[in-house]
Design a protein around this nucleic acid. Structure first.
Lengths: 100, 100
DNA sequence: CAAATATATCTATATTTCTCGATATGTAGG
DNA sequence: CCTACATATCGAGAAATATAGATATATTTG
């Protein structure tokens, strides 16, 4: 992993809400209700559900999630008008290994 | 690991110089010369050597290293007028595991 | 104790991040 | 095409961080 990417990941993980989101997404079943339009969490959790749980504004959460996707921490999948987010375990493991 | 500590660690790792310092300290022997007053790197690398290598000012590096020690990423040991820094592998592993 | 050197802290300014409301864009359904 | 709703982007003010120079504190040594 290159220094620049590691630093971008660090920036994403330098805010309590964003770290909390990473934690929530470890176990979507426990932390969220299944979304109306999908029966499972295979693609993760819908943006609005994360927004509601965080208590922050839609624009703030959208910015957070977009940045977290840009550096690879999250994977975003569109289904119609909804976007779903899940952890990118591969990159998380790479980063985790890089630190050690 | 609690959310608050994880966020503090993330803040330390949200700056390229600080991430670089963590990397340098993985292998002091490779990245630094042995310090005049100590023959080995058992307690890590002296503040001034890190400052010289980073190119930043003494006050900036001192602030960085102090904060990195406060959140537990680094261990600081005084030997007379010198302070030596090394990685706290135990906490780094805890953080790394927390992310996964 | 005085001088020299290493590190820490204080103060200040520039830059970045946080966060929101407003607005724009995308998408589904009538 | 119009409406409704989900998400993204823009613009702005507040708060936090980056970074340096000046100064203070610790420590060694003459």
């Amino acid at each position: 992993m290159i220094l620049k990417l590691a630093t971008e990941i660090g920036k994403c993980l330098s805010n309590q809400t964003r770290v909390q989101i990473m934690e929530w997404l470890k176990d979507p079943k426990k932390n969220f209700h299944t979304h109306e339009s999908l029966r499972n969490f295979d693609d993760g959790v819908c943006v609005t559900d994360i927004k509601d749980k965080s208590g922050l504004s839609q624009s703030t959460i959208s910015t957070y999630l977009t940045n977290m996707e840009k550096c690879g921490l999250l994977i975003m999948t569109r289904h119609g008008k909804y976007s779903y987010l899940k952890r990118n375990e591969t990159l998380i493991k790479e980063y985790s290994d890089f630190l050690k």
